[in-house]
Amino acid sequence: MLVLMLEDIRKLVKRTLDGGKVDGVLALWRENGRVGPHLFVKGDDVSTLEIDPKYNLAAVAILALASGAKKIALIGRGCDERALVELFKRYQIDEDAIEFIGMACSAEQAQACECDIPYPTKIQFGEKVDGVVPNELKNVDDMSLDERFAYWRDVFAKCIKCYGCKNACPVCVCQDCVLEDPMWVKKGEIPPEFPMFHLIRAYHMADRCVQCHECEEACPMDIPLTLLYRQLRQDMKDLFDYLPGASDAKPPLTTVLEDEKLEEGA
């Protein structure tokens, strides 16, 4: 099934490139036995194209566009689409510069990421499967405040402050990161101060985390970061009816209160 899908995608990429409407197709390729991102251009051998393992290409699209391509197609999963939406909203990528080709994840892939929305809004390949709720979520929810504090304290004690979570994140786009500012995070100290370091990052992810799990996969110490971010996503839904990456709605933390709308031009 996956093999058939891969063949179809390769054919589509070939057609898209030959069609000439885009300057390139951003996808994964296999080179020297490893899989990584690659911008396919006309004439490239599409048989090297791969769709597994997962690699969030949204942030790579910024680089691809910066390298001179005017319009590219991007083969991605649900999380790629959500990350793109967040990047459009934050003026990192021009919406017209991307043609998104969406794949739905298989049940195994969804399970591997414990993904809650393992499909894009536009599905061209694959079939929609249900989202997964991690068991750990209920465990953490059921804990008392003190137990939870002990849990996170232990988990974050493993942090070696490699900034892998920040670097892998497709929606971490600030030029100057608060986490690198010695005012908030002391230099040369591991594990970083708890709860300072992780709370800052979590807060900054609240209105933008698209649950792509790149941070967790990048983490060499297996810290369950997405567990915390997932709870925050739920909070954003409860508080402001906002789900990062789901629509072009403005991030609620940057807008004013609904019932106190300002006059035009005020």
Binding site: F149, W152, A206, L228, D235, M236, L239, L253, V256
Partner: peptide, 22 residues
């Protein structure tokens, strides 16, 4: 509208503290 933003941030911060056990 400065306090509008404070209000929204505060709600998120409260929840976040609770998640981490504070």
């Amino acid at each position: 509208t400065g306090n509008h933003r404070t209000m929204k941030r505060f709600q998120v911060l409260e929840r976040l503290l609770e998640h981490i056990g504070i």
